[in-house]
Design a protein around this nucleic acid. Sequence first.
DNA 1: GCAAGTCTTGCAGAGTGTGCAAATTCTGCG
DNA 2: CGCAGAATTTGCACACTCTGCAAGACTTGC
Lengths: 193, 193
Amino acid sequence: MESPEQRRERRRAEKRQAIRLAAVRLALDEGLDAVTVEAVSAAADISPRTFFNYFASKEEALVMEPIWRPDDIVAMLADRPADEPAFRSLKAVARELAVRVRPIWDTMQPFMELSNRHPELAARARAADQTQIMETVLGAVRARPGVTGGIHARMLLITTFGAMISAIQESAATDKPVEELLDEAFALLERGL
Amino acid sequence: MESPEQRRERRRAEKRQAIRLAAVRLALDEGLDAVTVEAVSAAADISPRTFFNYFASKEEALVMEPIWRPDDIVAMLADRPADEPAFRSLKAVARELAVRVRPIWDTMQPFMELSNRHPELAARARAADQTQIMETVLGAVRARPGVTGGIHARMLLITTFGAMISAIQESAATDKPVEELLDEAFALLERGL
DNA sequence: GCAAGTCTTGCAGAGTGTGCAAATTCTGCG
DNA sequence: CGCAGAATTTGCACACTCTGCAAGACTTGC
């Protein structure tokens, strides 16, 4: 069964996604300039004011929901065996996150297409997430065994995300499976590029 | 001597910097919310309209001029010996870019302070640059010897910038010299983290 | 079928950013 | 100096994003 709260949550998420799709379709069909809040709202059959009940900004509606959230990552790291070296833990976490991508790969396509045409979009949206992750997770990485210094922790994090982003982009460009590419990327990091 | 054009260029750059400083000072003194184009213009003694002759957006005035520009990087890469492996070339380029930072380190401080208080700022501003660099430079990296595949090129680029960003941030946090930290970072990349 | 809560909407207002044309300032040069 | 031509600054009108607030519409459980 479904509690009333879950029900509301789900509905809200569905509507959010519907608005997103309307926005992205509009952007792909008519160009980014055609995407005004007014136009999106009309397409999604809501009032402009309501749009902002679902998204804090217009941009937010044009990119997909982030697959990595700081708390998630901290939690996933905490779940790894305490004596596991940092690099190994991060690799495991990255793999787990990559797996999450698979079931939504198809729905991601329009967003990827849009990101290809307007690379600033996804980058800008991701930027906020990334710094937040850096700040939140850096402490957790430092606490892991096998971290030799301040810059080591930073490099571990930044390269982990570099690997994920590279894998996703390369996968979109070549159609190779993400996980395979992610393994390649981590192999490079492990033995040195 | 100085040609008239150079003169104009220089003046323009000076004014740009003056506006920047006014904006950042305002942000540090009164908080980010106090930074409206109107307030910045008043502080810099120009009209709001003129502000937009110097910056395409308010945000642009709150972060420092990027030290890396795509064309620069491509040119620097082209200057490296043709048979030098990609990793080595990128390391050399990164070092050269890091050296550029030294003479302006002091003027960077207010911006760093602001970036610490509002991490989204610098990240968002950098985002556009970074994707542009990716797109522009990726081809040049692929053409270098020692690049084994699509994901290798991507990882080389992304980790190079990761190293530079890590080094700068860590340097700001610990006061160690940037170049030393950059070397540490590249050592990690070279032998594997 | 009603009462309480939730969601949607309109409206007013502050702020960003742009095109255009007038006003101002700068430049070299006679 | 003083002036013609060029570059810069500015005001103005306008389209657009985003927010707070309060009223209206709609759900929901009972």
